[in-house]
Design a protein around this nucleic acid. Structure first.
Lengths: 195, 195, 195, 195
DNA sequence: GAGTAACCGAGACGGTACGTCCAGTCTTAGC
DNA sequence: GCTAAGACTGGACGTACCGTCTCGGTTACTC
């Protein structure tokens, strides 16, 4: 059933132009170099058309860049440690690719000012990941590696936190060996936490 | 031997005024609300006097707020898990206090633009912490909990990463139980990684 | 016979609400502070309802404020000079009252863009005044002060022009003495122009 | 002795570019079509550079367009009426030329909001004209046409007022005959007012 | 007296312009 | 010779407003 609109409907063309402009600008000038005015100019669009859609740069970037990210399928590697290793590698390569690399830290820096956006970020951005983690942990329980399923959110933080720090506070990717060590360590941590 | 300067020496009064102004502004307006111009106005100082000392807001905040942070003494709790628990609690309460809480994510967001600052941040900010962690891990080796000392930097990331995510991506402090679970998990991870 | 309309007739309530809103806003914010949107908001009415009635702010203000101005009765003072003195005083006090004072110069400034409105303004706003002036001049002819009746429009301009300049370019009312001097001078001018 | 400046001096290039842009835009789009933003864009200059120089559009237009207007020399025509006729014709053609024609009414409309600008406008714009009128009236006294010199400001208003009304309220130039009638009438008025 | 077509009011839209804040630079004077 | 202060330029901010368009609903003619 179509929703009834009260005034003039929004132009899809503008949505598209803004998205294109943003995805063009982000890798070239980084999150802090993206200004609403610049996006508007680049998209050939007025600023209020953007402010009508999103109430801040953070909101816009979140909606257009991070909202609908699809997570890769992760095959069963046969062990919790192997499964975690795949997750860590996906994270590393996902966040090291230009747009997330240039966007994530700035976006998180802007989250401070908008508690509502924080919760949506937490929910939307991580929900699918936690769901996948849940499945993965259940497999480990079935395998007998874990006694019970720990809170996937906590495992999630233990997996992404170190990668985030490494990338954005140390400015470099962890080595593959280090990544595998993380995976091994986190697998052991999961065991300890599920006891 | 003191270095000989050509020309007028910098005024210590200005350093002090700027530091005071910054520490007054940060908790009131947050990192993003701090503008060089505003700090200068608040401190009754010209902008070039600030730009002469630090080349950006990030640099200034880093130098004045994070550079000389002293870490608390951490007694030997008798076990690796207990030692980690103390570290995690210190982190939680340290980062949750107003200035770091309002400053860290924005500062990390700005690090992206300045690779040099990233390294200094990594070195300075974490060096002492890694040193303390090293001692703590050696104690664990002596106790027989660990076979060898893992890279303190990696353990450091595993401890601070999840806390960072929790605080700044989820917008809330972990519960004390969760913090202790982290400590237990990370202790197990250290064991696994030192094998 | 009333004209037959196809469709829904205009609501008188809206006309009234708009007039009230305009007359409330004008003295408070001045001509330039009156925006169609603001009038509409103040009147609790949609903008198109206003645009459907008048094609611009100037048109609306002209129609609602200046169209139906009634001129005061002017008794026969016994001499052309005395009659002119009354006209000048009426003008002075009329234009110095809040709404015309805040409205006239802005409205005239906007006339530039709308030649059609200029003519309606010239016709409507001044027609009655010219008519009264005509009577007054005829009285002067009958009295023998003038040989013939000069063009009332020209006399009109000579009476209102200096008052306009004084009020809106010099920003103050002429003194009563000056006003009387104007009247005496213009009476002499009328004599000279009717010769 | 050159005045000592404390900070960076203003760029003459910007003054020139803004003046050029304004004088290019005014005849093309009229006073109301001139926006600070548009002038800035046209001049390739930032808006604050304009706001630093003039606090409003009216101020800028007044300063750049009307401040330094030179009045034409007016030869002695041999009679007060003839002298007035020349003044009226100068006014007519001066104000009918594109820039004043498109600018004056809007500018006067904007004066309302700025009493300070009103006085400067009154002083600067009219001072020279009043001075010339003073000379002209003294000539008439010497000729014996006037007994004494009336207030040049009042004569000024009687000359420019009707022309203003004709041009900007009636939207057309007076005929030359009408202009001459004005001159004759105003000469008679001056006689009556100087008695 | 139901159908229909025109017109209505409200509100959201796209875009221009507003006036201000701030980043970063330049100029002059002082130490 | 470097410092300090102040004024400068221009990019970006977030908002008010303009004039238009879409929409559901009302009204008066038509059949």
């Amino acid at each position: 059933m179509p929703v009834s609109h009260r005034g003039r409907p929004r132009s899809q063309d503008i949505d598209d132009a803004v998205r294109d402009a943003l995805l063009d600008l982000l890798p070239r000038v980084g999150y802090s170099g993206v200004a609403i005015e610049r996006v508007a100019r680049h998209a050939g669009v007025g600023k209020p058309a953007i402010y009508r859609r999103w109430k801040s740069k953070a909101e816009m970037v979140f909606a257009l860049v991070f909202h609908d990210v699809d997570l890769p399928q992760r095959p069963d590697s046969g062990s919790l440690e192997g499964d975690f290793a795949l997750v860590v590698r996906d994270l590393m390569f996902g966040w090291a690719s230009p747009i997330p690399h240039l966007t994530l830290p700035g976006l998180i820096g802007d989250l401070a000012g908008d508690p509502d956006l924080v919760s949506r970020f937490a929910e939307t951005f991580n929900a699918r990941e936690r769901e996948l983690l849940g499945e993965l942990l259940e497999r480990a329980v079935r395998r007998g590696e874990l006694r019970s399923v720990p809170d996937p959110a906590e495992i999630h933080m233990m997996l992404i936190g170190p990668v985030f720090i490494w990338l954005f506070c140390y400015g470099r990717l962890p080595s593959l060996e280090a990544a595998d060590r993380f995976a091994r360590g986190t697998a052991a941590a999961a065991v300890a936490m599920s006891a």
